[in-house]
Every structure is written in structure tokens, then in C-alpha cells.
């Protein structure tokens, strides 16, 4: 465990932890809005910022953050005005960012090798200055996401209703995309711009398998992201691989493991079906006796019918009647 005491390794783990916690936090809102791939697009845009920084000889991180936030606000305003209804405009913006970044880096005399540190992450080269910058932006993302959680949820779930109670809908929408842009750029040293989107989506999907509720899902996703990021960063030291790849592979592994749990939970929380024909049965017909006791959580599909609940199994509808079940 001597690697824990190596300063560059400590910086790497801290940077990975910050990404692992912030990416799923903001990703929860993107997944809810069915914008799972927005993070990927913003990652492409950030490449332009890196290219510009290489050409001008400035620090890549702040410039990439600025370009990515501006781009994300532009996308949001286009979406709001209804002019970005086609995906072509967004594709042009994103691939313009990627190709522009590559071009600028080439003009600066840097090959794709320099860029790959940003595309796939380069945890072990995180400097102390980088770390402070990453920590400050990560703190901003977390404070805003958790502080405005109910407001951001309301706007993402139902914009007309949010407007009707007087929430500043446009401002909150811009907050969501700006935080996503910040998170994507901050993650470019840890998982890399091409893989950060996975960390925004996969832990959220994993958490949604395991718990019910938006708020609980968000916090569990942050925990899952932290586990994946820390174990991936440590593992990449041993395996001598790009950290981003291992972090994402672990996140997907956790998702796969959570799958069977979700099947059980889904059975338990099946929707109550309401039958439209409410005529009660004509005859009192006894069902076959079984030791199983039906209740709300027993896992059998239930239907609401003429003011009571029937449980369905093996093609029969059973309704509780005194100490036995009736066939309905």
C-alpha cells in the first residue's frame, strides 16, 4: 500500500473522487431529461478549448471550462427557442468543437498524443494547481446541485408546472447545462472527455436499479461513482492502464451486478391495474386453497376491481374473503 503515500497518487485519487461524485450528481438530471448523451457532446466541445489553450500556451483547464460553459448555454438557448429541434445543428457544433480542437493542437505543433491525455484522462500528471481548480469547481457543482435539488428536479420533470409556480425556469435550465459543462471539463484529467459521459449516466442507471426515489437515487449514484472512480484509479496504477478506461469498466460492472436486484424490486412494485368493468362476480366461487397469503408486496400482479383488490396468479384472480380466497 506504499502507493497511498506517493504525492502524485494522492492527487490522482482526490481528483478521481471529485469526478466520481460530481459526474453522477449532475448526470441524474440529464438522465431524467433523456439527455444522457449531452455530456458526450460537451466533451467534444471541450476539445476546442484544449486546442486553443495549446495554441496560445495558456492553462488548458480554465479555457476549456469557459468554452464548454459558453457552448452549453448556447445549446440551451437554442433548445428553448425551439430552433435546435433537429440534431444536425448540435452535431455540427460538437464535431466542430472536436475537429477545431484537433486542428488548433496541430497548428500548435502538438500531435494527437498530447490531446489523448485529455481524451482518455491522465490522472498521474495532475498538478497541485490542477487539483485546487478541480476541487473548487467540484465544490461549486455539488453545492448547487444539492442546494437546488428540488427546484432543478421540478424544472426537469415538468416545465409548465414549474413556470406556473413562478420558478425561474430559464435560469435553472442554464444552471443544469452549465454545471454539466463544468463537470465534463473538470473530468478531462481523470476519466477523459470521451468517457466522462459514461460516469454521468452509468452510476445513475445503477442507482435507479437499487433504490426508489429521485433524491435517494441521486445520492446513491454519487456513492457508486465514488467507488468506481477510486477503485479504478487505484487499479490503473497496478495495471498501468489509462485510468478512465478502468473507472468506466468498473462502473459498468457495478451496473451489471445491480441488474438482478432491479428485477426483484420491479416485481415488488408492479403498478396497480384498474379494471374498467366494475361488475362484481355473479356467483360466490371458492378458489383453491393455498398457504400463500396475498398482500400488497407479495409480488403477484394485483388489479383494483369494484372497490377491492384481486391478486392474479396462474390465470386466476383471487380476492380475499374472510378466511379464504374467492375466484373472481
Amino acid at each position: 500500500m506504499e502507493w497511498l503515500f506517493l504525492p502524485f497518487m494522492q492527487r490522482a485519487l482526490l481528483a478521481a473522487l471529485i469526478t466520481g461524485v460530481t459526474a453522477p450528481a449532475i448526470g441524474t438530471f440529464l438522465v431524467q431529461r433523456k439527455l444522457s448523451l449531452l455530456g458526450d457532446g460537451l466533451g467534444h466541445l471541450a476539445v476546442a478549448g484544449v486546442g486553443l489553450a495549446l495554441l496560445t500556451g495558456t492553462a488548458p483547464l480554465p479555457l476549456a471550462v469557459a468554452i464548454c460553459v459558453l457552448g452549453s448555454i448556447g445549446i440551451e438557448l437554442l433548445r428553448e427557442s425551439g430552433r435546435a429541434s433537429g440534431d444536425v445543428g448540435l452535431a455540427i457544433l460538437f464535431y466542430g468543437g472536436l475537429s477545431g480542437g484537433l486542428l488548433l493542437a496541430g497548428l500548435a505543433g502538438q500531435g494527437t498524443g498530447t490531446l489523448s491525455a485529455y481524451l482518455f484522462g491522465s490522472l498521474l500528471t495532475v498538478t497541485v494547481a490542477d487539483l485546487w481548480f478541480i476541487a473548487a469547481l467540484g465544490a461549486v457543482v455539488l453545492v448547487v446541485v444539492i442546494g437546488l435539488l428540488p427546484q432543478l428536479f421540478a424544472v426537469s420533470a415538468d416545465e409548465p408546472f414549474a413556470r406556473s409556480i413562478g420558478l425561474p425556469v430559464r435560469l435553472l435550465n442554464i444552471v443544469v447545462v452549465s454545471l454539466a459543462a463544468i463537470t465534463v471539463t473538470v473530468s478531462m484529467r481523470t476519466v477523459g472527455l470521451l468517457l466522462v459521459s459514461a460516469l454521468m449516466v452509468v452510476p445513475v442507471a445503477t442507482a435507479n436499479h437499487l433504490v426508489i426515489g429521485f433524491r435517494r437515487g441521486l445520492f446513491l449514484a454519487m456513492g457508486v461513482g465514488a467507488v468506481a472512480a477510486l477503485s479504478g484509479a487505484a487499479g490503473s496504477y497496478y495495471l498501468n492502464t489509462a485510468p478512465g478506461s478502468l473507472i468506466v469498466v468498473i462502473a459498468i460492472g457495478l451496473f451489471v451486478v445491480s441488474w438482478p436486484v432491479s428485477r426483484v424490486l420491479q416485481r415488488r412494485n408492479r403498478p396497480l391495474v384498474e379494471l374498467t368493468d366494475e361488475a362484481p362476480p355473479l356467483d360466490h366461487e371458492l378458489a383453491e386453497s393455498h398457504a400463500h397469503v396475498h398482500d400488497e408486496r407479495c409480488g403477484h400482479l394485483s388489479v383494483q376491481h369494484a372497490g377491492h383488490v384481486d391478486y392474479i396468479h396462474d390465470g386466476h384472480r383471487h380476492a380475499a374473503h374472510g378466511d379464504h380466497y374467492d375466484e373472481h
Binding site: 431524467q32 433523456k34 428540488p150 420533470a157 408546472f161 409556480i165 413562478g166 435507479n208
Partner: peptide, 28 residues
Amino acid sequence: RLGYVPQRGGILVQQATAREVVASGRLG
């Protein structure tokens, strides 16, 4: 002062509980 009920179907919630949806009514 306003309690608006839009048409059902426009609402985007994957995970939220019924209670979380109702709680957003307090945000005004």
C-alpha cells in the same frame, strides 16, 4: 396562489416517488 394541473403525459420522471412529485408543489 396558483394550483395548476397540466395534462398528464408531459411529465418526465423516471424515478421520482409520488411524494417527490407532490412536494414540488411547495417550491413556490
